[in-house]
Amino acid sequence: MHRFSRTALVLGIAFAGTSLQAQDTLVVRLGHVSPTSGPAAHLGADNVNGMRMAIDDLNAAGVLIGNRKARFEMIAEDDGADPKQGTAAAQKLCDQKVNGVVGHLTSGSTLPASRIYNDCGIPHISPVATNAKLTQQGYKTSFRLLANDNAMGAGLAHYAADTLKLKKVAVVDDRTAYGQGVAEVFKKTARSLGLQVVDEQYASDKSVDFTPLLTAIRAKNAEAIFYGGLDAQAGPMLRQMQMLGMGKVRLFGGDGICTHRLVELAGSPANVAAVTCGEGGASVDKMPGGAAWKKRYDARFPGQFQGNAPYGYDAALVLVEAMKRAGSADPAKYAPELFKLSYQGVTGRIEFDSTGELKNPAMTLFQFKDGRKAPLN
């Protein structure tokens, strides 16, 4: 009887220790929203992959938040690059009381979702949504990790006017918040630099036939077309430009068309030879540790890299860095730390201004050489 009691006591202490250890683990749930269905699914999947790497790295590192070991979980939602799906996903994450959100990918989805995150008090960092309005709404929960459309559209217009010495350009956008935003900045800057905008045309983010608008642009002798939209439409547009004898007309665009998949969508390397596109940030080879990071990415997700993944990765790590500094994963407690931190990420030095905009964002212009993206700066 005495021996049994002693054994039971030892077992009781052991189980109690295990229970206390389990209770002492802090579970941190991070939401992620991007399109993993529809024409932008390859871009969304790239971001999901980046964040998945971040979650695994964080769990392997044994991160402490307020002297408690944290275990990180990702809750991924698909918004199909659709504003209505985006707001539904945001509300779902709010209802689940996640600790923070990485997302959304497209500006059209991010802008309406940002209000929902503001109302429920959950910080979100968009890896790549570029519409300037995102950080002009006065929300203390919205952040972005790269240059906005004001920098992108202006940078491409300067390249067209100052470097290429073009005189006549046409502007096309897909009527989304992203496409309209970047195209409008390009148009205004181009005109201020003396470029003649000879035509303005509109498509949609589901368009497949661009022949009528391209025919109209061809009649006005445009030397270049700026397209505000995604690669899913830019690819067919490039094929149709070739068929209409417009192979020497340059195509400009922002990060939405600046993907490795554009070559496939355009049909051949020759069809992208006259493309100049921009990304808000440094090329991955020029990012601090970017080459080594991409090697890890390619080993895990071969053939899937589109350029967005490092931003999804860094966004997750920045949220967690703020939690570590605050000693809490409570959004109300760690959110203020996001405005104070200076964090060296894969994409560069990350510091936010008072609006949630990245301080000193880089921008890289690209062209395609033999079907491969090559930085111009």
Rank of each mutant, 00 (worst) to 15 (best):
L9D: 11
L11K: 02
A14M: 13
A16P: 08
G17T: 11
T18D: 12
Q21D: 11
D24F: 11
T25K: 15
V28F: 00
A40V: 12
A40I: 10
A41V: 00
H42A: 13
A45N: 14
D56H: 11
A61E: 12
G62H: 11
L64W: 11
I65Y: 05
N67W: 11
R68Q: 14
K69P: 07
F72T: 05
E77S: 12
D78R: 01
A81D: 12
K84A: 15
T87C: 05
A88H: 02
Q91H: 05
K92E: 10
K92V: 07
K97M: 05
V98W: 06
V102Y: 03
T106Q: 09
S109M: 06
A113D: 06
S114I: 09
R115Y: 13
S126C: 00
T130C: 03
L134A: 00
K140T: 14
K140Y: 08
N148C: 05
A154H: 04
L156N: 06
L156P: 01
A157E: 01
D162R: 11
K167R: 13
K167E: 13
K168L: 07
K168H: 11
A170D: 03
D173S: 11
Y178F: 14
G181N: 10
G181E: 00
V185N: 05
A190V: 00
A190D: 08
R191Q: 15
S192W: 04
L193V: 10
V198H: 05
Q201D: 08
Q201E: 14
S204D: 12
S207W: 03
P212I: 12
L214R: 05
T215I: 08
N221A: 14
F226L: 01
G229C: 02
L230C: 08
L230G: 13
A232E: 02
Q233W: 03
G235C: 01
P236I: 06
R239G: 15
Q240F: 03
Q240T: 07
M241R: 00
Q242E: 14
Q242D: 13
M246F: 08
V249E: 01
D255H: 01
I257E: 06
I257G: 11
I257K: 02
R261A: 15
V263C: 09
A270K: 12
C277S: 08
C277Y: 01
G278P: 08
G278W: 01
G280D: 04
A282M: 12
R296M: 04
Y297D: 02
D298P: 05
Q306S: 10
G307V: 07
G307A: 02
Y311E: 06
A316S: 07
L317D: 04
L319I: 00
A322I: 02
K324D: 07
R325Y: 00
K333I: 12
F339K: 12
F339W: 08
G348N: 07
G348W: 07
I350N: 01
F352Q: 04
F352S: 08
D353N: 15
D353R: 07
S354M: 09
T355F: 05
T355H: 11
K359I: 14
N360S: 14
A362G: 12
D370M: 10
R372S: 14
A374M: 12
L376M: 12
